[in-house]
Simulated scan of single mutants.
Amino acid sequence: MGTVVENVAIDCADAYGLARFWGAVVGRDVEGEAGDREVRVGMAEGPALYFNQVPEGKAGKNRLHLCLRPDTSRDEEVERLLALGASFLADRRNPDGTGWAVLADPEGNEFCVLRSQSERAAAN
């Protein structure tokens, strides 16, 4: 027996606005409209991203975060995400190419950008 993860819920101040950012990140459509308090971004595989508008702001570090593995290089993806409105928080990349970059979405939720599969394969 088991259960299925239906979605990853993200509390936020602007459900539609944050869903638009994440929809652009993952290249998927936003299911909702401006002003909606609950908005969804359906994924091609795995659980959906579900944005729930809440009255309180983010406080402290995320206890759960998303890790992204891009199709392009990690560094190219970091630049793309910064152009979409992400903020750079920490550089955990190592000289040997391992590691990750820590970014934050427009509401301050941390997430990581990992190396692509091709970068990982080239290192082996």
Rank of each mutant, 00 (worst) to 15 (best):
G2V: 08
F21S: 07
F111Q: 04
A34S: 13
E56Y: 10
L49C: 01
T3M: 11
A121Q: 12
L18V: 05
L84R: 09
D71P: 02
M1W: 01
E33L: 11
N52Y: 02
M43L: 15
R20P: 01
A104D: 11
S87Y: 04
E31M: 13
T3E: 11
W22S: 08
R92W: 07
N52I: 10
V41H: 00
A104Q: 12
R74E: 13
V54Y: 02
V26L: 14
N109H: 15
A121N: 09
F88L: 15
V30T: 08
F21P: 09
V54M: 02
E76A: 15
A86W: 03
A48V: 01
R120N: 08
S87H: 08
G108A: 13
A101H: 15
Q53Y: 03
A90I: 02
G85I: 05
V41A: 02
V30E: 09
E31L: 15
P106C: 10
D75N: 13
A24M: 10
F111P: 03
V25I: 09
A15F: 04
D75H: 05
D91F: 03
T3I: 12
V4F: 12
L49D: 01
E76N: 10
G97Q: 06
P55Q: 07
A48C: 12
F88P: 06
L82G: 08
V54G: 00
F51Y: 01
G17L: 09
D36G: 02
D29Q: 14
A19M: 10
E38V: 13
S118Y: 06
L84Y: 07
E119Q: 13
G57P: 03
G97L: 02
A44C: 02
R69Q: 14
V8G: 05
V102E: 14
V39P: 01
L103V: 09
S118H: 14
G2N: 12
A44K: 13
R63E: 14
N62Q: 13
T3N: 07
F88S: 12
D71N: 05
G108T: 03
A44D: 10
P95Y: 07
G57F: 00
S116M: 09
A15Q: 00
E110D: 15
Y50D: 02
F111R: 05
R93N: 12
G85L: 03
A83L: 06
R92M: 13
P106G: 09
A13E: 14
S116I: 10
E77L: 08
D29K: 11
A104N: 10
D105P: 11
G23T: 06
Q117P: 12
R80T: 08
G60D: 02
R120S: 14
S73E: 12
Q117F: 13
D36A: 15
D91K: 10
A101R: 12
E119G: 04
Q53M: 09
F21G: 08
T98L: 03
P47I: 03
G60I: 00
L81V: 05
C112V: 06
N7Y: 14
A83P: 06
R120A: 15
D29I: 04
A90N: 09
T98Y: 04
V5K: 08
N7L: 03
P55G: 06
L66V: 09
G32M: 13
Y50V: 02
E119M: 01
V25R: 03
L18H: 09
G2M: 11
N94G: 04
A122N: 07
N62W: 04
G97I: 06
R28V: 06
D105K: 05
G23K: 03
V102C: 14
G108R: 02
